[in-house]
Lab assay of single mutants.
Amino acid sequence: MDPFVVLVLCLSCLLLLSIWRQSSGRGKLPPGPTPLPVIGNILQIDIKDVSKSLTNLSKIYGPVFTLYFGLERMVVLHGYEVVKEALIDLGEEFSGRGHFPLAERANRGFGIVFSNGKRWKEIRRFSLMTLRNFGMGKRSIEDRVQEEARCLVEELRKTKASPCDPTFILGCAPCNVICSIIFQKRFDYKDQQFLNLMEKLNENIRIVSTPWIQICNNFPTIIDYFPGTHNKLLKNLAFMESDILEKVKEHQESMDINNPRDFIDCFLIKMEKEKQNQQSEFTIENLVITAADLLGAGTETTSTTLRYALLLLLKHPEVTAKVQEEIERVIGRNRSPCMQDRGHMPYTDAVVHEVQRYIDLIPTSLPHAVTCDVKFRNYLIPKGTTILTSLTSVLHDNKEFPNPEMFDPRHFLDEGGNFKKSNYFMPFSAGKRICVGEGLARMELFLFLTFILQNFNLKSLIDPKDLDTTPVVNGFASVPPFYQLCFIPV
């Protein structure tokens, strides 16, 4: 058959498939802009700032609406009420993970971030239990974070109060905490193996944040037939998995079943207990991918939040002064901060919360999916439909947070200066898919920041009023603009 005829037939089939998918069930789905064949609503979305586009569309179609990214149908949730109703009140029905062709290629359905069903539930339950087990290797997770915080302070001392970009050092600290939990080992910041790991993690975040990856996920045929950065992403992930597998083999040879040292040991012990169960989800494949998931999810998000926190503290020296006064009063100079201190430091706690609220790190979270046909607000959402959640619409709700575009710790303080919780605080998402490392991340943010401010004054290279804190939105995360500062020993 003539190649031209084959091409026309293929394009015609794709067009018909697109029209059929977009028209099927439209009477039951939430409203939304009319999609174009094949490309859907992509032309109506700013790929570099999806969150802003969703906010604009919500003003037209309401808090629940339908979009098509290519052939992929998505239902968008915008605003606290619908997000709570879906992710919390109907948590089980909305607990699936959205379709990610690239991740599915890399992870093969294993791990904790992109798995679904029984596998996801069992691996998540085990990971939560293990991360909360403060007795691994007779050292609590808090001990590990405190140790890394001391190392971080010593690295900052080496800058000798000269101007520096904190990106690298602030990236090393949370990565080392995860390494300590998974591998029972922290690395020197100049260790070549550690630097290679950091390089792969950072490069992957840069790649994932590009519009090209959005295109690959919406048109998965590209993955096999086109060159691009997605190939580098898959190569980096394969490198990390190979490295983790080597460490798993080392653990198998040296493990003491009665004295687990780290996450890998705990997983291997669980595998041993379930070795007679042919349906067990505790396999080497799941261990390797879960460890890679924890490394990827637990490094860049925390380091970016820390980097943004220091920029905001530079911009608002009056806030920094209040935090340091609270540190001096509650902790002093002669001991290290600990998590028990947080309950006695409402202002510092409010500042950490406000940093996370203000920066809105992951504006749309990772997409969910419905696990069955769901009736939601008089609409029928078919099983498997991807759910896109606007966390921006919750964290920047102007009824809950007056002047949401302003950095103001009073958003989390009552009139008496006591810490005030808010149900709208969802930087880790909400419901059954809430970030498994939430507790660890909150511990790291509090301890790293208090250790830094206990030991250093922060000095800006320019007038604080002239510092730009506008986030650089890159399609996946909101990151701070480049800046330098000086760490002046107190």
Rank of each mutant, 00 (worst) to 15 (best):
P227L: 08
N204L: 06
I257H: 14
K52I: 05
N258C: 09
A292E: 08
L15P: 01
F110K: 12
K249M: 09
V8P: 07
M129L: 12
N56E: 14
S18C: 04
T364F: 14
R124D: 03
E122V: 10
L467D: 05
N204C: 06
F446N: 00
P471A: 13
I244R: 01
L14F: 08
E328G: 14
P30G: 00
R73H: 07
G439Q: 13
G332L: 03
W120Q: 04
E104Y: 08
I215L: 14
R132Q: 15
R377W: 06
V473R: 15
C13A: 15
Q184H: 13
E285Q: 11
C216I: 14
L413K: 00
H316D: 05
N196T: 14
L201K: 04
K160T: 10
I223L: 13
I123A: 06
E85V: 05
T299K: 04
K421F: 11
M426K: 05
F110H: 12
A238M: 13
H251Q: 02
A430G: 09
E415G: 12
S303K: 13
S365C: 08
K138N: 08
S18E: 11
P346M: 05
H230C: 08
L445V: 10
F134L: 13
E300L: 10
D373K: 06
H353E: 01
L391H: 02
G40P: 02
F407N: 00
P63N: 12
K59A: 11
F168K: 13
L11G: 09
A149N: 01
K399G: 14
D256G: 05
K432A: 14
T302H: 03
K420C: 09
K383D: 05
P31T: 05
L16P: 06
T385E: 04
M406T: 15
Q356N: 06
H251A: 05
S162Y: 11
D468M: 11
I207L: 14
P382K: 06
V473H: 15
F428R: 01
I387F: 03
I205N: 14
T229M: 14
V208Q: 15
G137Y: 10
Y61W: 15
Y308M: 11
S209A: 10
P481I: 08
F219Y: 14
C338L: 09
I181C: 14
I387Q: 00
C175D: 02
F446M: 03
P404Q: 06
P382A: 05
P317T: 10
V355N: 00
F412A: 00
D397C: 08
Q356Y: 09
K158R: 13
K160C: 09
R433W: 01
P3M: 15
S12W: 14
S162G: 14
S393L: 01
S53G: 07
I205T: 14
I434V: 14
V355H: 00
K399S: 14
D262Y: 00
K249T: 10
K465R: 11
I244N: 02
V76Y: 04
K118W: 11
L7W: 12
P471T: 07
E250R: 11
R377C: 05
G40F: 00
L449V: 10
A149S: 06
V113Q: 13
E274I: 07
K200T: 14
